[in-house]
Amino acid sequence: MWHTLWFILRSTIISSAPIGYAALGGVFNERSGVANIALEGILLVSSFGYVAGAFFGHSAWWGLFWGIMAGLLLSLIHAVATVTFKINHIVSGVALNTIAIGVTRMLSLVMFGQETQSKTNSYTQIFGINIQWLVALMLFLVIAPLSYWLLFKTSLGLRLRAVGENPEAADSLGINVEKMRYTGILLGGIVTSLGGIALYPTIWQSGISGGRGFIGLASMILGNWMPIRSVLASTIFGFADALRLLDFVQAYIPNEFLTALPYVLVLIVLAGFIGKARPPRADGVPYIRGE
């Protein structure tokens, strides 16, 4: 009994982590006024970055480093496209998601000899703890509260939020809108990369992100763009994800249904909730000075 409960809790935390990190990444992006649907792509490339980095660097630390670098790089492209060149945020996001799929497959072919999956990586421990479990726990214990503190108790957070609500007003007060948006996108990129690392450190497969970036965005909306609430919202989907790992559930409910459950939940939850959520006012709107 206790064993089963612990198993459910642990699976929920692990399954929620990629979604929760993506949700948090979404919060940083959108609070600064940038819509970022490339979170999905960031999960994918950071997951690949971890496996490849750890595999070839013979250390989980290298995995961590390359996982974050991969996510940061993709975020940086989004930042340059949307902030510097004022490209439509969704268009840039779609392009990056496509690029993420192609680039990881190509790199996998070059590095591991096959397109669809990597070789098995055995470097998954940091301080003797499984990195997937460690990173997942960190989300709830450290990263989510820290994000709240950063956004609501520091001047950086205040400025970031101001830029997402009314960039013109922020600009008039001498706040560098572009710098703040870069900050939001890159912070969001780092956080989302942690989600990619928590995805599956042992092996990378094409399509491994499985829409979790988008479910993360749904969690963010459900959490009304608040960091802690968004992370908590992700556990609903994480729990649904964890359910299908249980033997007795599998015995009674067809696997197809269980796999679809998180996505069905997203639809139900958003349909009932979306009118009540209030996105940042300048969310997804490129800022062009002097208009």
């Binding site: 205040l158 400025r159 101001a162 609500e165 009314n166 007003a169 008039s172 007060l173």
Partner: peptide
Amino acid sequence: MLVYGLTTIENIILGYE
């Protein structure tokens, strides 16, 4: 040049925290 969504006090100190 007010930022809706922020409180009065946040608006006053914004950029001059």
